[in-house]
Each structure stands twice: as C-alpha cells, then as structure tokens.
C-alpha cells in the first residue's frame, strides 16, 4: 500500500514538472512551429536565477525569475528567431541549438561549473495515507499544474487565446482584425520561455544546479510534446503524463539502467503504433495540413 502511495505521489510530482515544461514547449512548437531545443537551458537559467538571488525572499524571487524569463524570451525571439520561421522547423531548431550553447556557456562563464544548490522555503514532510513525503515537492507540483490549467484556460476560453490561435492559423487575417502578429508571436515565445524558466525556478531546490543541468530535461519535454497530437496543447500535457508515468513506474520496478533502455524502446514503439500522437480526445489546434493542391 505504502509503495503504491509513494509511486502515485512520485508520478504526480514529476507530472507537475514535466507538464509545465511540456506546456511551454508545446506552446512554442504548436504556435510557432519551433522545436525549442534550448528549453532545458531555460530551465537552467531559472535555477540559476534562484541561486544567484538567494538573498531575496522566495516568492519575490520567483516573480523575478518570471520577469527574467519573459525578457529573455523577448530577446531570443527578436534577436534570433524573427525571420527564421519561413525557413522551416530545422532552421529554427538549429538556431535554438546555438542559443542553448550560448546560455550554457554564459552560465559557465558567470557561475562556473561547481554544483550549486538552492534552499527550499519549506523543509517539512507531510503524512499522506501513512507515507511521509516532502511537502515542497507536492506544493510545486500543485502550483505547476495550476499554471498549466491557467495557460489552457487562457488559450481556449479567452479572447486573448483566440487571438493567439487566430494568428497562427492566418497571420494576414489576424492583422486585418487589428492584432499585430509580430507582437503575438513574440509574446507567445516569451510566455513559453518564461514557463520553462519558472519550471526551473520551482524545481531548483531539488537540483544540483550547474550549467549542464538543463540537458536532462530536454528529452522528456520533447517526447511529451511530440507524443501528443501535433500542435495540441492538451496533447502535450497528456504526453507529459505518459512520460512521467512510464519513467517513474519503470524506474521503480526495474533497475535504473534497464528502466532507461525500456523507456526509450517503449517510446519508439508508442510512436510506431500511434504516429499521429496519443490523445484521449480530439482537441486540435490546427487541422492536419493537407497538401494545398488537394483542397477542394
């Protein structure tokens, strides 16, 4: 019983973190068609912000991280990505790869490579169904999922979300409606980047913070986003759940090395069986693009 509760809690906490990563990456991928391979490095930036500003109380520090994430997102979008979209997803992928090197080496130059750590604001454990579990982990998972829910709500239930989705579907139409598409594009990327930085900030008290720390988060976020139906935000979140569940269950019941091998093999099989993405309902942002010539 204890084992089951611990497993459930572990899946839940990891899901919270991965969902926040996936929603940011999914936003950037679904809306801009950019595979953000610097997502892990943005997480790293968030963790370093929390480390560098250790004298500021925790909550204001989180806000600062959000702010820095937004600014960083705007800068990257404006300096690097703008004008690259038309050249297809590989051009932006390679550009973001360059950005990831710059962020990593920048952090290395500033902070060095000795693992740093961030003190958690809450040290207590909590008893849940007879299992003692770190309270901070649970809280950040809940916070992360709340943010994910908010992003979904804004995207699907508000005028702002409509504008964002409209811009993606038809930039000319959106500009006719009086929405500057550039602003929406930049804003979307900035929010996606900010979510990654925030995820890193929230997670920082659990990590050994080094410039390399981001590398571990790229693959799960990537798999989460691409396992879900392409371009679908709920799909990405569902993908995050699948990855968190598989990874935790495999690592709990198999030994660590075998778990990794089985995880990657399972992901290949999953994609082979359902190349169009696993999704529990048919929410789609963009219809699957038919070749233009076939359109009736």
């Amino acid at each position: 019983m204890d084992a089951v509760v611990t497993l459930a809690l572990s899946v839940f906490t990891l899901f919270g973190f991965y969902a926040l990563l996936a929603v940011g990456m999914g936003l950037i991928f679904g809306q801009l068609g950019v595979v953000n391979v610097a997502h892990g490095e943005l997480v790293m930036v968030g963790a370093f912000v929390m480390f560098a500003l250790a004298d500021v109380p925790f909550l204001p520090r989180l806000l600062l991280a959000v702010l820095i994430g937004l600014v960083l997102g705007v800068v990257i979008e404006r300096l690097v990505l703008s004008n690259l979209y038309e050249r297809g997803f590989l051009a932006t992928l390679l550009a973001m790869w360059g950005v990831s090197i710059v962020l990593r080496e920048g952090a290395n130059a500033i902070f060095g490579s000795t693992p740093a750590s961030v003190r958690a604001p809450i040290q207590e454990n909590i008893e849940i169904l007879g299992v003692s579990y770190p309270l901070y982990r649970l809280i950040i998972a809940v916070v992360a999922l709340a943010i994910v829910a908010a992003v979904l709500l804004v995207t699907y239930r508000t005028k702002l979300g409509l504008v964002v989705r409209a811009t993606v579907d038809n930039r000319d139409m959106a500009s006719v409606l009086g929405i500057p598409p550039r602003l929406v594009v930049t804003g979307t990327f900035a929010v996606g980047a900010m979510l990654a930085v925030l995820a890193g900030a929230l997670q920082s008290p659990l990590l050994g913070v080094t410039p390399m720390v981001g590398a571990a988060f790229l693959a799960p976020a990537f798999f989460a986003v691409l396992l879900g139906r392409a371009g679908s935000l709920p799909g990405a979140i569902f993908g995050a759940f699948v990855v968190a569940l598989l990874s935790t269950v495999l690592r709990t019941y198999l030994n660590e090395t075998l778990a990794q091998v089985v995880l990657f093999a399972l992901l290949i099989v999953l994609v082979a069986v359902r190349p169009n993405g696993i999704d529990w309902r048919k929410v789609q942002w963009k219809p699957r693009t038919q070749p233009a010539q076939v359109a009736a």
Partner: peptide
C-alpha cells in the same frame, strides 16, 4: 564554446 554558439547562430540566421 561561447564563441562557437554565437557563430553558429549567425550562420543559421
């Protein structure tokens, strides 16, 4: 490495 990253971005762009 930092220089390499910047050069790489410039080449792509």
């Amino acid at each position: 490495l930092l220089v390499l990253g910047v050069v790489f971005i410039l080449v792509v762009k």
